[in-house]
Amino acid sequence: MAESGILSNIDRQMFLSMIESAISPYIGANMARASLKMHCDRLNLFNPVFTAEECEILLEKLAKGLHVFIGEHSTLAIIQEIHQKMEEKGIHVA
């Protein structure tokens, strides 16, 4: 835990579930899970704990893909929703 009381790391599974539940209503649970796995593999994100920076990199990659399917507005709304959930868990995002 950082001095400010803000967590800098998040449990991998918790974070991926958070993303999955946010994007599944749009692209379906299958595609959400498969896409998350694909990006984690490509980005070598295998640690049981993600740093805030790793979370942002993953979100950025996902957002680029989501743009193509659901447009920029809906993608932004999803990313904001995930950020909000992260803040609720005490993870600071830029």
Binding site: S24, P25, Y26, I27, G28, A29, N30, M31, A32, A34, F69, I70
Partner: peptide, 8 residues
């Protein structure tokens, strides 16, 4: 693969 989502 999008089954269950609005894109489906």
């Amino acid at each position: 693969t999008m089954r269950g989502g609005v894109l489906w």
